[in-house]
Nucleic acid binder design. Structure first.
Length: 285
DNA sequence: CCAGACGTTGTT
DNA sequence: GTCTGG
DNA sequence: CCAGACGTTGTT
DNA sequence: GTCTGG
């Protein structure tokens, strides 16, 4: 889960989403970040974390890092593979040596407008765009690391924690990213005020809120080179899907919208078609 | 002790 | 770096 | 994650 | 099916 996303956020929006709306965060390597409607591992994202200073102080910064963890112990001559560790299972992240070593001091936050997930229907694949209804950015719990290449250049990379899927999204997939949807949650992940056990029990959980919504988008965005606002433009459902549904052996049992008669594949209807800001009723979870 | 691995996804 | 396997 | 390629021989 | 490239 979570191998593609939209991130066109400006640094101030990233800071605000991560709970630093009241201060100007220092930017590191920000020129490397290219806002995009279709980002995959290997691309730079604006990442929020605490930078340890020499005097012991730790100040929050927005640093451009590549999606797809390249651990510090990677061989210098090795070619970085950003697709090997772009996700980390939250259920096992404390046991896995590659990730557990990062938990004490390499936690970070990544903010995006939304992410993509492909619904598999036989041989057909239909991508969906998943986002907050009020267009508030999502914040993912992440871990980062740095690696020195053969030339001595330092590469900063991160991985997104995943968890089992929420009830509302289980018709689509069985995994989802760990979404930190409150300032308490982002602060707990970044600052670790309480114990790791507490953080995992309280905040590293599937996001179940009803304001996380979705709609189908063009399959053209499956091509990583396809970019622009058309990636998140809602499309009408294909007839092919209706036909394949007719021939399905079993009906969809775990569909939370079945009782309401709502089509789970077109969950959100009343959203603006473009990127303009709207006066949405902001709801917090 | 040293050597070697260190991951997630989905699909079957 | 740190854990597992031999 | 998805998309796209996936091969050898001989001859010029 | 399976590997590579983005």
């Amino acid at each position: 889960m979570c191998g593609r996303a939209r991130c066109t956020l400006a640094p101030d929006a990233v800071g605000a989403a991560c709970g630093f709306g009241d201060c100007q965060l220092r930017l590191i390597d920000h020129d490397r970040y290219r806002p995009s409607y279709n980002v995959s591992p290997g691309a730079y994202f604006p990442v929020v974390h605490y930078e340890a200073k020499d005097d012991g102080e730790a100040l929050p910064v927005v640093q451009a890092m590549k999606w797809g963890l390249v651990p510090s112990f990677t061989k210098k001559n090795e070619k970085p593979d950003h697709y090997r560790m772009f996700n980390a299972r939250s259920e096992t992240v404390r046991e896995k040596t590659s990730f557990s070593r990062l938990l004490p001091a390499k936690r970070c936050l990544v903010s995006v407008e939304g992410f993509y997930e492909w619904k598999k229907d036989g041989s057909k694949k239909q991508p969906y765009y998943i986002h907050f209804q009020d267009e508030r950015p999502l914040v993912f719990a992440c871990l980062y690391d740095s690696w020195q290449d053969a030339e001595g250049d330092t590469l900063f990379t991160f991985t997104i924690l995943t968890t089992r899927v929420s009830k509302r999204l289980e018709w689509l997939h069985d995994r989802m990213p760990v979404i930190l949807a409150s300032d308490d949650a982002t602060k707990a992940w970044l600052e670790l005020g309480c114990s790791l056990d507490d953080v995992f029990r309280k905040f590293v959980q599937p996001y179940e809120g009803p304001n996380l919504v979705w709609y189908p988008v063009t399959s053209a965005m499956g091509k990583p080179s396809f970019n622009g606002p058309d990636c998140i433009k809602e499309i009408k459902q294909q007839k092919v899907n209706d036909i394949s549904r007719f021939f399905k052996r079993k009906p969809q049992e775990s569909n939370p919208n079945a009782a309401t008669g709502q089509d789970p594949e077109r969950e959100v209807c009343d959203r603006p078609r473009d990127v303009k800001k709207t006066k949405a009723t902001a709801s917090q979870s």
